[in-house]
Design a protein around this nucleic acid. Structure first.
Lengths: 135, 135
DNA sequence: ATACATGCAAATAGTTTGCAAGAAG
DNA sequence: CTTCTTGCAAACTATTTGCATGTAT
């Protein structure tokens, strides 16, 4: 089993995601650390992001349209994805945190994780539309 | 606005998904109707599947690994995806059907849909593993 | 006739991988 | 010195698109 070795690139990638509130894509991370590592490659970013996901330090959000996003918050919560601007907002709905346990009771397999995503139009895009309509 | 015109291919694609309990991929649909339409192209299958999704006749399931899947069941329900065999099982958890409404109350945007996916190892794969261990 | 749909092939997006060279333990 | 990691480029998977031709209305 591969023993992990320190790398400055990986630390930078972790830092970037940890300090990000925007649920960055691999590309955003890549762009964000390019100043510090001008020669870094997208491949390295992808490799390290999925490594950090495997380690449980960050989480991967599958959007269903567009690239995957990464989340520094690994605690149970849901996401709202705006189908117009593609921004992702955290949704805390503690009454549903027990979902996994609840469903596990009556399911004949091993449930390791779950993910709830809401789709729609965010407040900002609704307002932007209203402006367009009146103009 | 494009007025829909009848096509035998589209009907066949709809039929196939409607009679499918396996949440087929575009490729599976393609393979499944190739006997009837030997010259059909994948592009046509993709075009019609997304058309049917837009019409609300079928639903698209984003898996997060591997290709999208399609579902004849458009009523609110969740899915379990086995990370090993990639089979998808429907999960009916009516206590969570109100999720959308509940979350909408305290959210400043328009929520149009939501999707909950559970990940893990299905019963069959768990049993298969057990056999391997003892052999 | 007109407009939508098809088949084909090429293009695109996102991500993964092989490999030689570089850095960590 | 051995193993892990990197950068680069090529490969790959899933999906979309342009275009000439075919089909429905």
């Amino acid at each position: 089993m591969a023993t992990l070795k320190y790398s400055r690139q990986r630390e930078s990638i972790r830092e970037f995601v940890m300090n990000s509130r925007e649920h960055p894509t691999a590309d955003t991370v890549y762009a964000g650390i390019k100043a510090e590592f001008p020669n870094i490659s997208l491949g390295t970013v992808y490799r390290n992001l999925s490594l950090l996901v495997d380690l449980g330090e960050i989480a991967k959000i599958t959007t269903g349209d567009g690239p995957d996003r990464f989340d520094c918050n690994t605690k149970p919560h849901s996401h709202f994805i705006c189908t117009q601007c593609h921004n992702i907002t955290d949704i805390e709905a503690s009454e549903f945190d027990c979902m996994k346990e609840k469903v596990a009771e009556s399911f004949d397999g091993k449930i390791t994780g779950h993910m709830t995503t809401f789709y729609g139009i965010c407040k900002e895009c609704l307002e932007a539309k209203k402006i367009k309509k009146t103009s």
